[in-house]
Design a binder for these strands. Structure first.
Lengths: 213, 213
DNA sequence: AGCAGTCTGTGACAATTATCACGCTGAAAT
DNA sequence: ATTTCAGCGTGATAATTGTCACAGACTGCT
């Protein structure tokens, strides 16, 4: 966990930070490696760091009372967990689950310096606000889909997100996983996917889906 | 629109602002009176001010493609439109509708000073972050309900919000208005309300509902 | 009182989604 | 090669919600 590495990640993934801010983060932050599949945040947990994603992908999802889970959005390198910023600042507990989908590298900034960063570095609070706004927007868009659209459109929206996230025409995923993320049943997903296939929108394989758009 | 009035509103509804901040707001802000029923924000509109609610109630809702509307949350005195803060800061357009439900008094802070407030006044950015977090939470809770619950529970949740918002055991509202807010049909609302009445949860009158809890 | 318009109640039916049941397939394991 | 099992396809059926049709009730107006 040398500072050489932190500097490297910051320069590469957060180039928009002003140089004083980069220096300061280098001084106070630590780097954490999270193996794929591991939880970063769970409901009820106190947050002691603001988490900046440097490498990997983090999936945020909400858990229902009966254990249902629902996908909210992905966090990519260069983004921060908006909730971790706020929860950290207010010393409150999180309301969502965050799971590393790949091996992930995170820059952990202790709560104690947030105030200082906010006060001294314009690029920091711009970053925070921008991040917050973007997540808010994503949440609103998701809400739109859940409120106004049917499963067919939600599935297409979900898939288009997964594909653009993956950056490939091909993703490895099972119908059951999709059903979990959309909080529906596997059968419904299978049927709708089948329909998309006959509509030439996707090609279905075992464990994977190919995007034909 | 004298500064006497601004000071009065700030002292009363935003007492948690540090005194330097109060002074500064008094210098730069203006007061706007919005008659009940009028729109404060509409999608696509550029935001030039951060809006602090001093009096009245503002309803935020999202509009679907076909004109459906869906209630998101209320803003009360002492709160700010989180979106207006962000949109103003980023000079972007809004994604939601905001309507004054009562005659509303708002303190309008020009975009141009947001940077300065953020940098110089800790109580300001605390306020902004706290507001943002609260709205984010409300949005997440709403999402939960829409994703995981049926109409019956959503209706109860909606009503309990409306009642606590109104601070009365009695609200003036039609089934059609509720149906609009929940993006369902009047008939569904009527039926579910009827069931709630037989379950002794509410009493129904023409144009009003009484809460029996 | 009589009329018009809004609000509400309710049955019948359609559409969507959830659940159950079961069989098939392809990949991995022994 | 045979077994085993997760992943997938699909019909049947239930549950929830949306839509249509219409009637009665209340309100305000003349």
């Amino acid at each position: 966990m040398n500072t050489e590495t932190i500097r490297h990640y910051i320069e590469k993934k957060f180039p928009f930070f002003e140089s004083g801010l980069k220096d300061r983060i280098e001084e106070v932050a630590s780097v954490k490696h999270i193996p794929a599949g591991e939880l970063i945040m769970r409901p009820g947990q106190y947050i002691k760091h603001t988490v900046l994603v440097a490498e990997g992908v983090v999936k945020l999802y909400r858990e229902g009372e009966d254990g249902e889970e629902a996908f909210i959005y992905h966090l990519n390198p260069g983004q921060a967990c908006a909730l971790s910023i706020i929860c950290a600042a207010k010393q409150e507990t999180s309301q969502v689950l965050a799971k590393a989908m790949e091996n992930t590298t995170a820059i952990m900034i202790p709560v104690s310096v947030i105030d200082e960063l906010m006060k001294n570095y314009k690029s920091w609070y711009y970053f925070v606000l921008e991040n917050y706004r973007d997540r808010f927007d994503e949440l609103l868009t998701l809400l739109d889909h859940v409120m106004f659209k049917g499963m067919d459109e939600r599935l297409e929206f979900y898939l288009s997100n997964q594909f653009s996230q993956a950056g490939k025409k091909d993703i490895i995923i099972t119908h059951q996983e999709i059903a979990n993320d959309l909080n529906t049943s596997r059968e419904v997903v299978s049927r709708l996917l089948k329909k998309m296939e006959t509509d030439k929108k996707v090609r279905l394989n075992r464990n994977s889906i190919e995007w034909l758009k």
